[in-house]
Design a protein around this nucleic acid. Sequence first.
RNA 1: GCCCCCAUCGUCUAGUGGCCUAGGACACCACCCUUUCAAGGUGGCGGCACGGGUUCGAAUCCCGUUGGGGGUGCCA
Length: 468
Amino acid sequence: MSVPERAPPRLRFAPSPTGFFHVGGARTALYNWAVARRLGGTFVLRIEDTDEARNRPEWTEGIIESLAWIGISADDPTFEGPYFQSSYAADHVEAAARLYQSGAAYYCDLTPDEVQARAKAGGKPGYDGFSRDRGLEPAPGRVLRFRVPDGATVVSDLVRGEVEFDNEHIEDFVLLRGNGTPMFLLANVVDDAAMAITHVVRAEEHLPNTPKQQMLWQALGREPPTWAHVPVLVNEQRKKLSKRRDKVALEQYRAEGYLADAMVNYLMTLGWAPAGETEIVPWSRIEAEFRLEDVNHAPAFFDLKKLAAFNGEYIRMLPLDEFIARCDEWLPPDWDRAVFARMAEHVQTRVVTMADVAPMVDFLFLPDPEIDEGSWNKTMASEFSAPLLRDVVEAFDSTAFVAAELKTTLEVIAERHEQKLGKAQAPVRVAVTGRTVGPPLFESLEVMGRDETLRRLRATLERLERHE
RNA sequence: GCCCCCAUCGUCUAGUGGCCUAGGACACCACCCUUUCAAGGUGGCGGCACGGGUUCGAAUCCCGUUGGGGGUGCCA
């Protein structure tokens, strides 16, 4: 038995070189990466650079960094690049010349305004093929247009099946501008051909351009690549995620304390689902199971709430010591790490993002708790608060300062004031932490220590008495 | 306008003609647990856009309607 010969796939990813990396782009990159890894191929990053991008190397660095964050490692031989479109500029012009010589393209001297005027007069949108048979020679100001053949172009797409386009609706599009520079479409195809790209996986917004690119491949005498147009990501209004309206920058999610693993896992469930009972699966399984053929056809809503749920779950999956280690960069440098470590297990089950960590335990490190007025008013208004606090101060002065003892002590006091423990702990909590909600109280007190606890309780009593 | 794509709970999905009185996840609600808040556990609410076919049988195939999205540059 012989294994069928098959060239290893080369997939390319061509993000627009703006200064940030989009979650939609991240998902497409992940799709590419998963396929390249599973099939033992290569994933090529090619930046479609513009003049502006060429002057901003940090944009490319940002893309590389973002890809690294979501696990697409530049160290891995599967990953190649970045390459730049401009490095193939000579090839673009050469290919255009070949197309002209073979008759697959022709020159046209109409200005955009003239093209539009003719379209309006003819009642048909787009360029009408005016210069097709005029035999114009190349000259400054003249554009090179592709001669779209009659018939139909069938795009064979891994996620959508066969999509047929009637060539009658495709105008003779521009290959070279009047100044001789190549258009994106041409450059793109020439680059892909030169780099021996076998799979083009991109967002579905590119589907209408695909027949044009496919015809170019064929006119250049090359076998077109395998296409895969994946659905776009949309906002709550079902519109494509946009930089202006929506929070789309990958960097922003990192800055807000989302874990890369959670982000990757969530992104992959948009348009696809791993087999089995749960959507929370490690990348190793995604890589092994992901198929472009299984990707959904409909746009998917990027749901922040579900991302948050995934993130919380990923945080809770972390072994405690790793959670502590990961918290380090989220804590102010002057906070005592040993103190935090004692509280970490209580923090871990309560945070949604890493950015929630510090605010949850800040009262332990601040010279004084930041009193939330709403919490104060609600809690201290109770008749029993002041007298109970007085009892607590007295009792805490002598009880062993460990959580279990503190709890027992407060239980006794609560009973004396005819309150349930849930009610009785509230004024203590507000006095010491400044809020009605937070990590478990007695554990917090134990970590805080007797002196500081008593100081805060007394300060609270003073404030209460002043107001009476 | 023209071209293309799409359509399962509010959301993300499973489902590829009988295993579907449609399964899971997020969200929401209730209860349990409980020192607040979480976490965890249990349960609940909730969907095949509509109309025609095809078939013994349709969420699944075909046609149409409606609704959504994308594309229509000498932008990328």
